[in-house]
Design a protein around this nucleic acid. Structure first.
Lengths: 130, 130
DNA sequence: GTTTACGTTTACGTTAACGTAAACTATCCT
DNA sequence: AGGATAGTTTACGTTAACGTAAACGTAAAC
């Protein structure tokens, strides 16, 4: 099964594409983050599953837990009924936005710190080669 | 010990300022990220210790492990001897920079996604209130 | 002089996110 | 037919980052 039939992927194809193990993908399913189709026993992943996986891994790179990633993914879904729930959803979205903005500030400071470290190291190098 | 003598802090002062527990601070020391002075048994934290703690927590917000945070903090230190080591340091700094830039891209995409989710939720709200 | 508040060490417990291994099934290859 | 290859379930193991509790020291406060 080296080629995906039309618009679907095997578990090992996705694993290889994203540099993770099949165990990890099954684990995400176990935690309710993925729910691929089945052909018999075998899992069949559709493009939408692949997108969800991408979002999970993006969250991971930002230090989010799987629960947080699930929450963010669910925010995009169209399954939110009444007015109260929609308002609560909007609040949660806003909270996440604040958190991401904080991370942006943190990154800026850390990048500045790295620039500083680079300058120091280069200065030390120059001293050595004199 | 509600007031810090001159330029130093107690462990509970730092804990309260940063919204963490004293257990956490001692844990960081155990992992070699902090090494405060002692007055008898009691730990005395200097401004530089406080700065290190701030850096650790910033790393935490970005999803860094304590080992990664320690590495970043050590990058700033002036304890790197020969030319080879300095070059390796410069490489590691650059790698971290790349990682942070990736995080920046991830955040941008996620913010865009949140904007999208907000628009959808607001549209759904409008439908409800008609 | 004994609570109360803050500090200490030691040690076992807990959760998230997988790793690793065993035991089995289905399929393709030669 | 008999591996080799890719899939499956089940289950125990592991690491990081603390939480929680016990048992104790010390010093200020009542």
């Amino acid at each position: 099964m080296s080629t995906a039939s039309a618009d679907s992927y095997s578990i090992s194809e996705l694993a290889q594409e994203f540099g993770i193990t099949t165990r990890t993908i099954r684990f995400y399913e176990d935690k309710g983050l993925l729910s691929p189709e089945r052909r018999g026993q075998t899992r069949i992943y559709k493009p939408e599953d692949r997108v969800r996986l991408k979002l999970i891994l993006r969250g991971k790179r930002l230090g989010f837990s799987l629960d947080e990633s699930r929450e963010i993914i669910d925010m995009y879904d169209p399954a939110h009924g009444n007015v109260d729930q929609l308002n609560r959803l909007l609040d949660r979205i806003d909270a996440k936005r604040q958190q991401l903005r904080q991370q942006q500030r943190d990154i800026e400071k850390m990048l500045a710190q790295l620039d500083d470290a680079t300058a120091r190291a280069q200065a030390a190098l120059k001293d050595q080669t004199d």
